[in-house]
Computed example of a mutant assay.
Amino acid sequence: MNVKVLIVGNGPGGVELAKQLSEDHEVTIVEKETVPYYTKPMLSHYVAGDVKEENLFPYSLDWYRKKGIELLLGTTAKKIDTKKKTLETDRGTLEYDILVLATGAGPRKLQIPGSEKMLTLRTIDDAKKLKEAIEKERELVIIGGGFIGLELAGNLSKKGFKVRVVEKTTSLMGLDGDLTERIKKELEKYGVEFYLGRDVERIENDVLVTDKEEIPSKVILCSIGIVPETTLAEESGLAVNRGVLVDRTFKTSESNVYAIGDCAEHNGIICGTAKAAMAHAKVLANNLRGIPDEYDFQFRSSYFKFGDFPIAVLGTLTKDGNWLDSETKAFYRDGKIVGVVVFEDMKKARDWEERLRSSR
Results as ranks from 00 to 15, higher is better:
1 M>T: 05
4 K>G: 01
8 V>Y: 04
9 G>Y: 00
11 G>Y: 00
14 G>Y: 00
17 L>P: 15
17 L>D: 11
18 A>S: 09
19 K>F: 00
19 K>T: 02
22 S>H: 03
26 E>D: 12
26 E>K: 11
31 E>C: 15
32 K>F: 11
34 T>H: 14
34 T>Q: 14
39 T>K: 12
40 K>I: 00
43 L>R: 06
51 V>L: 14
51 V>S: 12
75 T>C: 10
76 T>A: 13
77 A>C: 13
78 K>E: 10
78 K>T: 06
79 K>A: 07
92 G>Q: 15
97 D>W: 06
100 V>M: 14
104 G>D: 13
104 G>W: 01
105 A>M: 14
106 G>Y: 14
107 P>K: 07
108 R>E: 10
110 L>W: 06
117 K>E: 13
120 T>R: 14
122 R>H: 14
122 R>W: 12
126 D>V: 12
134 I>S: 11
137 E>R: 15
141 V>Y: 04
143 I>D: 02
147 F>S: 14
147 F>G: 11
148 I>R: 02
149 G>D: 02
150 L>Q: 07
152 L>G: 02
155 N>I: 02
156 L>S: 11
156 L>F: 10
156 L>M: 09
160 G>E: 03
161 F>E: 05
162 K>W: 00
164 R>T: 03
169 T>Y: 01
171 S>T: 13
174 G>D: 09
174 G>L: 09
175 L>K: 06
175 L>Q: 11
175 L>E: 08
177 G>Y: 05
180 T>Q: 15
181 E>N: 11
183 I>T: 06
185 K>L: 00
186 E>Q: 13
187 L>C: 02
188 E>K: 04
191 G>M: 01
192 V>N: 05
196 L>V: 10
199 D>M: 05
199 D>L: 06
205 N>L: 11
207 V>I: 04
208 L>F: 06
210 T>R: 03
213 E>R: 04
218 K>D: 14
221 L>H: 03
227 V>G: 05
227 V>W: 07
227 V>P: 09
231 T>K: 13
231 T>L: 08
233 A>Q: 06
236 S>E: 02
238 L>S: 01
239 A>C: 04
246 V>P: 04
249 T>H: 07
250 F>M: 11
251 K>V: 00
255 S>V: 03
256 N>E: 10
256 N>G: 03
262 D>P: 08
265 E>C: 02
268 G>Y: 06
272 G>T: 02
274 A>R: 11
275 K>I: 05
275 K>S: 10
276 A>T: 01
277 A>L: 06
281 A>P: 14
288 L>Y: 05
288 L>M: 07
289 R>V: 07
295 Y>R: 00
303 Y>A: 08
306 F>Q: 02
310 P>A: 15
310 P>K: 13
311 I>L: 09
322 N>R: 09
325 D>N: 09
325 D>F: 01
329 K>I: 02
334 D>E: 12
337 I>Y: 08
340 V>Y: 00
353 E>M: 03
355 R>F: 04
355 R>E: 10
358 S>H: 06
360 R>T: 02
360 R>E: 10
